[in-house]
């Protein structure tokens, strides 16, 4: 038996007794970043496939959400910074070893793209919209001409954005719960799934809803597989990772994880989607809301539980 205590009275705020350096801002941002990544991915994908007419919610309507959620996410990120006047230092350098630097730069690509994409579709909402300046009209014409290359850039950068939200955590070997490479694919899949849910909410056509219901069902299946895989990895790993998994297997985060993330956020919407595919009438708003709720809970639970997991020495 071994017990270690700090006897000099260390009580550094946000560090002791348990690390709590990141509060609601980071998980909220990770959720919104993943959601925007999912929406933009599907918009770009169906543009490249030439199905704008068939799936208008995916290509035109849902992308209006992306710049809004990205701006809220960026605001949350900014609120999290403690040395705010120096935030521009992020953009004076590229640090390849730092996921946060990757994220800052990929957001510099994705955020303007999401605005351009929405601007291109603004006539869907305001049919009489006029850009007033000729150079904006020229730019619009240029974008419309090159929509396929733009869609490719958007698809790839949204995938990087989606996967980085997980890698941000998994790069910390000091927090054993986060230190698993599964988190990258898991957060990416969850981001795509919440993106599909947002499209389902915006869609007016039954065919489109059904397609995204199917896509979401597959994505939820992948997520469940990745979660099982994550626990298998933890249980076969070192003591610190076994302890980290125990936070969810009887520890303080057990009910939050299994009830809110897995049951309500993954299994229940998957069941509703299966029923829908079997021609039962299920209000889409329930399924989509549950998926979005599961996505946000997953970020919160993993962000907080990760900070509670540590190396003991």
């Amino acid at each position: 038996m071994r017990e270690e205590i700090i006897v000099s009275g260390r009580m550094n705020p946000r560090i002791d007794p348990v690390l709590n350096i990141w509060h609601w801002e980071i998980p909220l941002y990770l959720f919104l970043g993943g959601l925007a990544a999912g929406i933009l991915f599907f918009a770009a994908l169906y543009t490249i496939m030439g199905k704008e007419k068939k799936y208008p919610a995916a290509v035109k309507w849902a992308p209006f959400i992306a710049p809004v959620v990205l701006m809220i996410g960026l605001l949350a990120l900014f609120l999290d910074l403690k040395h705010k006047p120096y935030f521009w230092q992020l953009y004076t350098t590229i640090r390849l070893t730092s996921p946060m630097s990757w994220g800052a730069w990929v957001l510099m690509v994705v955020t303007p793209l999401s605005f351009i994409w929405s601007a291109l579709n603004i006539k869907e909402i305001f049919p009489n919209w006029d850009w007033k300046f000729q150079w904006i009209r020229d730019f619009e014409a240029f974008c419309r001409k090159n929509i396929i290359p733009i869609a490719w850039i958007m698809m790839i950068s949204s995938l990087i954005l989606g996967i980085y939200t997980g890698i941000l955590f998994s790069a910390f070997n000091a927090r054993p719960l986060w230190n698993t490479s599964i988190l990258g694919p898991l957060f990416l899949t969850s981001g795509l799934s919440t993106g599909a849910a947002a499209i389902m909410l915006m869609s007016k056509s039954h065919e489109e809803r059904l397609l995204f219901s199917k896509i979401d069902l597959i994505l939820i299946g992948i997520e469940l597989f990745l979660i099982v895989h994550m626990f298998m990895g933890f249980m076969a790993s070192t003591q610190v990772q076994i302890d980290a998994a125990k936070l969810f297997l009887g520890g303080p985060y057990t009910s939050a994880f299994w009830i809110f993330v897995v049951s309500l956020g993954l299994v229940l919407p998957a069941l509703l989607e299966i029923l829908e595919l079997r021609k039962r009438k299920i209000p889409i708003v329930i399924t989509a809301t549950l998926v979005l709720f599961g996505g946000i809970m997953m970020r919160f639970v993993i962000a907080y539980a990760g900070q509670a997991s540590r190396w003991l020495y």
């Binding site: 550094n12 705020p13 946000r14 560090i15 002791d16 690390l19 350096i21 990141w22 999290d80 910074l81 403690k82 040395h83 705010k84 120096y86 935030f87 230092q89 992020l90 730092s98 946060m100 790069a171 910390f172 070997n173 000091a174 927090r175 900070q307 540590r310 190396w311």
Partner: peptide
Amino acid sequence: HEECIGCGACVASCPYDARYMHPEGY
């Protein structure tokens, strides 16, 4: 201190919990 944005990534990355956020932000 002049380059630190106070994001907290290094604080979370330290297995020894040796870093802290100074009240001035860095």
